[in-house]
Each structure stands twice: as structure tokens, then as C-alpha cells.
Amino acid sequence: MAATDARQLLASLQFSDSAFPSGFYTMSHGLEGFSQARLVARGDVHGLLADLLVHSVGPGDATALAGAHRAATASDWDEVQEIDHRLFASKLNAEMRTASVRSGHQLADLAAEVLGGGGDAAGVTEYANRVKARTTPGCQPVATAVVYAACGVDTEAAVASDLFAFSVSFVGAALRLRLTDHRHAQVVLYEIGAVIEQVATDAVRRDVADIGGCAPVADIMSAQHERAEARLFAS
């Protein structure tokens, strides 16, 4: 493996790692709402995750990430900003919008520090400055796209890495909600790989004008979760 390829791989592993403090640990990505409504049981985690990837995350977040990655690679920051606004507008629930921008702001801020003041950080700094100036929302997938572009990770690898990070976070939430155990969680993550591969391929090919998933039950669960009396997760 070439040194450049190894560096890109390491970057994708670092920023998609569940230990990276981007705020994913605070999210269940709607799973807690399904659990509160008793619409998901211990054996349903894989199926629900696959449905969300195919019908919600893929057409929404992953498509925005792919488009923003291409734009960031070309240093087209107005296009990155336009995609950011489009993705933010496509999120129907307040808690999903809030969770996305909180994580995105954290990622953009920390990534600039991690990458240092060199050339790698220039694009991240440009985007972070726009977030701070409130000219762009700062959604997590767009922030991720900017970071991966700065690290030289190619578009499809960037999308697949973020989809896996989402899946790890989702399964981690399932563990905390006692919807799975540590052994079965690893089975779910391995088996979801085939879904991630197809969703990533579709997201890279999809036009940014088509950003936005269709998962009405997930939207309803999120809306109910916003008003829950007790919550373990932010989303």
C-alpha cells in the first residue's frame, strides 16, 4: 500500500471512530423513539438500521456528503454552503436538525485543530469560519465531507466511512437500550456492510437536487421523542 493511501485510510478510520468526540455518542438516530413506542425488539435492530440507511440516511445525509465532498475538493465553497442549506431544510424534525448541526460544529472545530495549521486544514478552516459566521448551517455530513476532502479521502470511501460511523453509533445506542448484546452487535455491523456498499454507491451517483429521504415512521418517532418525559439520547 502506498504511503498516501495508508494516510487516507488512517484519516478515514480516525474521523469515523466511535471514540472521536463528534457527539455521535449522544444520538440514537431515532432508535430511542422506536423503542419507547415498542416498535423495535431485540431481533429487529439489523432490519431497522438497513431501512434507515436505504430510505433515509442514504438519500439524505450520504447524498449531501458526496456532493459536498466533490465541491470541497474543487474548493467551491458556495456549492458546499448550498448543499448544507439543502440538507438542513430536508430534515423535518427539530431534534434531528439540532443533533446534526451540533455534531457538525464540533467536528469542524476539532478537525481544524487535529489537522493543524498546514495546507490540509485550509478547507476545514474556510468551512468552519462560514459556520461561525452563520452563513451555513454546519450539518454533520457536510462537515464530514469537508474534513475527508482535506485529508484526500476519495468520495465513495468518505461516504462509506460515514455510513459505517452512523451504523456503529446506531448499534451502540441499541446496546445502551438493551436491544442487542455485544456479540450480536458485531454480527449486525458485519452484515450491514453489504447495505452500506450499495447505499454508498447510490449516494455518489445521485444528484444533489434529490437530497432527502422518505421515512415517515422515523419522522413520527422523532417528533414523539422530542416531547418524551425522559430521554437517554438527544435524538
Rank of each mutant, 00 (worst) to 15 (best):
residue 3 A to Y: 14
residue 3 A to R: 11
residue 11 A to P: 00
residue 13 L to V: 11
residue 14 Q to N: 07
residue 16 S to C: 12
residue 24 F to R: 12
residue 25 Y to C: 05
residue 26 T to S: 03
residue 28 S to K: 04
residue 28 S to N: 01
residue 31 L to H: 01
residue 31 L to S: 00
residue 34 F to M: 04
residue 36 Q to K: 11
residue 37 A to Y: 01
residue 38 R to M: 12
residue 46 H to D: 14
residue 52 L to N: 12
residue 53 L to K: 09
residue 53 L to Y: 05
residue 53 L to W: 03
residue 58 G to I: 02
residue 61 D to Y: 15
residue 61 D to N: 13
residue 67 G to I: 11
residue 70 R to H: 13
residue 73 T to A: 15
residue 74 A to T: 09
residue 75 S to T: 14
residue 76 D to Y: 07
residue 77 W to M: 10
residue 81 Q to T: 15
residue 82 E to L: 15
residue 82 E to N: 15
residue 85 H to V: 11
residue 91 K to C: 14
residue 92 L to I: 14
residue 98 T to W: 11
residue 100 S to W: 02
residue 102 R to S: 13
residue 104 G to E: 05
residue 105 H to N: 08
residue 110 L to V: 09
residue 112 A to F: 03
residue 114 V to Q: 03
residue 114 V to R: 08
residue 118 G to T: 10
residue 121 A to G: 08
residue 123 G to Q: 02
residue 133 A to V: 09
residue 136 T to G: 07
residue 141 P to G: 00
residue 141 P to I: 00
residue 144 T to G: 13
residue 144 T to E: 07
residue 147 V to L: 08
residue 149 A to K: 01
residue 150 A to Q: 07
residue 150 A to K: 10
residue 150 A to H: 07
residue 155 T to A: 10
residue 156 E to S: 09
residue 156 E to I: 13
residue 157 A to W: 07
residue 158 A to W: 01
residue 159 V to A: 11
residue 168 V to C: 14
residue 169 S to T: 05
residue 175 L to G: 02
residue 176 R to E: 02
residue 176 R to A: 02
residue 179 L to S: 08
residue 179 L to K: 05
residue 180 T to E: 06
residue 181 D to G: 13
residue 183 R to Y: 14
residue 186 Q to K: 09
residue 187 V to M: 08
residue 188 V to K: 00
residue 191 E to Y: 06
residue 192 I to S: 04
residue 193 G to T: 00
residue 194 A to K: 02
residue 203 A to C: 09
residue 214 C to S: 10
residue 215 A to Q: 04
residue 217 V to I: 12
residue 219 D to Q: 15
residue 220 I to N: 04
residue 221 M to I: 02
residue 222 S to C: 03
residue 228 A to T: 15
residue 229 E to P: 14
residue 230 A to M: 08
residue 233 F to H: 08
residue 234 A to N: 06
